[in-house]
Design a binder for these strands. Structure first.
Length: 472
RNA sequence: GGCGGGGUAGCCAAGUGGUAAGGUCGCGGUCUGCAAAACCGCUAUUCGCGGGUUCGAUUCCCGCCCCCGCCUCCA
């Protein structure tokens, strides 16, 4: 298995730290719950889901942690503006986040630690204390505690940044006069009036943790000093992940992460989808357009994680049509598999793959496009065999088993068959009668009425078949 | 300016030192009363541009152009 490690900027052979246990520890940066996450955020989570599921398919056990940032500038501002306590303000977005995960069929992490949990606050304070004692951090005049990046030689190595070249983009206000170096980042932010009652006591006075330290505290608390894989979006490389390395290694003295994986952005009209650009869609926005969670899942998953993905409604339609092709294929296979059929001649060429090309494609830095290509090639091959009546029940079952296996990774199968509404069933019965009388005009009329109700009727040699069709 | 990612058919997108998977869309055909689904066929003499290496490059090297992102709290 090979992954592109951001740290080395190379494709590397992946080896778990603990090969015997076949356990892989993964830390993934989660949402800041100040508003509903947008689908660009979920692209990252779907990439991580794909990663986890593939590792599991390959027989590894995955222990994955995803943090929830429920205290920072934005959440505090949001709570203040809404005039509700911070915890109440963030609760609604936590809940929305979990709903969206479910809609997109993203496997929940094993743990979702929140930054405001006392045990993590305590741990953050402990870590900051160690960093200060080692000269890696200092309290400035503004009472905040900062990381002294010049004392950590590897700082900048992940992002490949030369610290002397750092430029301010003006995006964030600096209290430059208080810091020794413009690149020093806050570990502990001293309380000020804007924070209201959001405050914790610390040896450095009241305040709240900086953003980066929470991930160091949670990852080491839940996964140990060293973890196998750490993921996030490319925008997290600097400064967030750089800071995490400095903090975690500054405390433990051990190499923090073996493999860093970062996914590219979701774009809209060629630009990064972002709250600040106001060009984002949420999961409910997409559902409101008539698409399903699995369609969005597929649309966000089908492009390699390191390539930018432009979100379009054409892309959503393509996802829909591709899934419909899979659905049709599965329905045909099920039908044949259930027949107690006599031996049909199934040529060897149509035998299901013991071959594991699908998994092997994913082994190669999660090459999902190649994997899906293999799936669709298999679909065409088996459809052809079925058209020629050359696929027997045993072979169909074997193909279904194969699908079942790869679908543990994809998880894009349609929801269980939806019951045909009585209204539609009634129209279908009428149409059947009309067809018996060869009353084509009436038959077509009924087909149209059924279509308006969101169902498609097909005439096969075994009679009418009804399939649910999403509106185009 | 520094550091990354990307540039392959209308759109999306794999890939290899030997002449381009797959999806979607469109067109033609088989099937059908007509459709739908499925299948068959067609759709990039060409892989951002210009050089170089090579018998041969989209793939390796050099230079350049374009798009997107990061450069101190954005997945």
């Amino acid at each position: 298995m090979r992954f592109f490690n951001t740290y080395s900027r190379e494709i590397e052979e992946f080896e778990p730290r603990d090969p015997a246990a076949r356990l892989i520890r993964i830390y993934t940066c989660g949402p800041t719950v100040y508003s509903r996450a947008h689908i660009g955020n979920f692209r990252a989570y779907i990439f991580e889901d794909l990663l986890q599921r593939h590792l599991e398919l390959r027989g590894y056990k995955v222990h994955r942690v995803m943090n929830i940032t429920d205290v920072d500038d934005k959440t505090i501002r949001g709570a203040r503006e809404a005039k509700v306590p911070l915890a109440k303000f963030t609760q609604q977005f936590k809940q929305a986040f979990f709903e969206d995960l479910k809609t997109l069929r993203i496997k929940p992490a094993d743990e979702f630690p929140a930054a405001t949990e006392q045990r993590y606050i305590d741990r953050m304070i402990d870590m900051i204390g160690v960093l200060i004692s080692r000269g890696l951090a200092y309290q400035a005049e503004d009472k905040s505690v900062y990381y002294r990046i010049n004392k950590f030689p590897n700082y900048g190595k992940l992002a490949h940044f030369d610290l002397t070249q750092l430029q301010s983009t003006g995006r964030v206000k600096h209290d430059e006069y208080d810091k020794e170096h413009i690149g020093d980042f806050a570990l502990w932010k001293a309380w000020d009036e804007e924070d209201g009652d959001v405050r914790w006591d610390s040896p450095w006075g009241p305040g709240r943790p900086g953003w980066h330290i929470e991930c160091s505290a949670m990852s080491t608390a839940l996964l140990g000093d060293q973890i196998d894989i750490h993921c996030g979006g490319v925008d997290n490389i600097f400064p967030h992940h750089e800071a995490e390395i400095a903090q975690s290694e500054g405390v433990t003295g051990k190499k923090f992460v073996c493999c860093w994986l970062h996914c590219a952005h979701l774009l809209v009209d060629g630009q990064k989808m972002a709250k600040s650009l106001d060009n984002f869609y949420t999961v409910p926005d997409v559902l409101a357009k008539g698409y399903t969670g699995r369609e969005l899942r597929y649309a966000l998953m089908r492009v390699h994680y390191r390539a930018p993905l432009n979100f379009t409604w054409d892309g959503m339609n393509e996802a829909r049509e591709s899934l419909a092709r899979i659905d049709e294929w599965l329905a045909r296979l099920h039908e044949i598999a259930q027949k107690e059929n006599v031996q049909l001649s199934t040529a060897n060429a149509q035998r299901p793959i013991e071959k594991s090309e699908f998994e092997e494609a994913l082994d190669d830095d999660l090459n999902i496009s190649a994997a899906l290509g293999l799936l669709f090639e298999s679909i065409r091959e088996t459809n052809r065999a079925m058209d020629e009546n050359k696929l027997d029940a045993a072979t169909a079952s074997a193909w279904l088993d194969w699908w079942k296996r790869i679908n543990t990774v994809l998880d894009v199968e349609a929801e269980a068959e939806i019951v045909v509404p009585p209204e539609v069933a009634q129209l279908a019965r009428e149409r059947e009668n009309a067809r018996r009388e060869k009353n084509w005009k009436r038959s077509d009329e009924l087909r149209e009425r059924i279509s308006v109700l969101g169902w498609e009727v097909r005439d096969t040699k075994d009679g009418q078949k009804l399939a649910r069709r999403a509106a185009k």
